[in-house]
Design a protein around this nucleic acid. Structure first.
Lengths: 184, 184
DNA sequence: GAGGCCATGTAATGAGTTACATGATTAT
DNA sequence: ATAATCATGTAACTCATTACATGGCCTC
């Protein structure tokens, strides 16, 4: 039993990869796609240039392994026993809340820097954006749940997105109302 | 008229700083506090080690200036005309949606990697966490709006947090229900 | 055979965190 | 006096993005 002295490194990317591979074995290319289409929009993103080296490290450490090979140097990875254990251990750990980052929100919280009319327009744009995202994610969720029986990370992510963009709509409505009050 | 070839650098930090200084002139120390207490939890965070150098750069570029000095080398910054213009320009720009990052969500979307019981417990923990956040942010919002007349970035951020953590509660309820279905 | 997608990798640069470092002021 | 908070800064390191680079496979 070891005593925790310093902080654990975050390294969420490796757990993101372990989690995605747990849902379904995949190539680095597949994982890149899944990031940009699914979870990348909601919780975490990574580019192939970061994914490939991380897959190598995880393989060296025995947390994942090549489960199939194919044309064009294709390598399908899956988690090992140790990898599954590492994932579970991370999931059950008390979640220290790491850094949150959302450039879109940063932008809208700054509307105080605009003239009231411009601010209202910016907020209305947010409403429209939230509408679009709810629609898009509703489709995504339907597609993802149709494909697989169990709800994997992407289904959870899509549904979370639906709830949270609805919240964004409500917030924008509230904020527009606030703006209206300020003008009067 | 120039044609955009490459991508614009993101540099959200500088706009975060410009926005916060627009709400109210502040020192690097103040800004650090505001990040960790307010918006840092919801949209963007930065440490003093990143803030101070950026304040220097912004000063060199004439976007902010020292509006007051005090004891202990204290320097209060405020935006210049050019800084205000740069902020407005950024706010009105079509928002390309930059990378979102939320380690907490990443974690909960991975509950597929757990046994049903453990998954349910993890989701219940999320519910409790969301409850706490709603309470905390309700207080924050009340305090922030009491202090200043106009709603600045921190008030918007707090209210957004309230809506979005309520969404998290609803999502967790849904996810727990899904888990229950899987067990049957 | 040409264009698009699949599939992998590395190098250079930029952004962010942790750790190191210092010192004045204020409250107890 | 001594601890907490105010206030600033730099250096080393890690993490993430962009750009560079290559080549096979598949469809039209």
């Amino acid at each position: 039993m070891s005593i925790q002295t310093g902080k654990l490194p975050v390294m969420s990317l490796r757990y993101a990869l372990l989690g995605l591979l747990h849902d379904c074995p995949a190539t680095g290319y597949d994982l890149t796609q899944r990031f940009t289409q699914g979870m990348g929009r909601i919780a975490w993103n990574a580019k192939h240039s970061q994914i490939y080296p991380e897959l190598h490290k995880l393989t060296e450490e025995g947390l994942i392994e090549v489960v199939a090979e194919g044309a064009r140097g294709k390598r399908v990875y899956g988690p090992t026993e140790a990898g599954g254990a590492a994932l579970r251990e991370w999931l059950l750990r008390e979640p220290e809340d790491g850094t949150v980052r959302n450039p879109l929100l940063l932008r809208v919280f700054m509307v105080g820097g605009l003239e009231p009319d411009d601010a209202t327009q910016a907020l209305e744009r947010i409403q429209r954006y939230a509408n679009e995202m709810v629609e898009e994610l509703t489709e995504t969720h339907a597609r993802v749940t149709a494909e697989t029986a169990e709800p994997p990370a992407s289904a959870y992510a899509a549904m979370y997105g639906i709830y949270s963009y609805r919240a964004m709509q409500e917030w924008a409505k509230w904020a527009i109302e606030e703006q209206r009050k300020r003008v009067d």
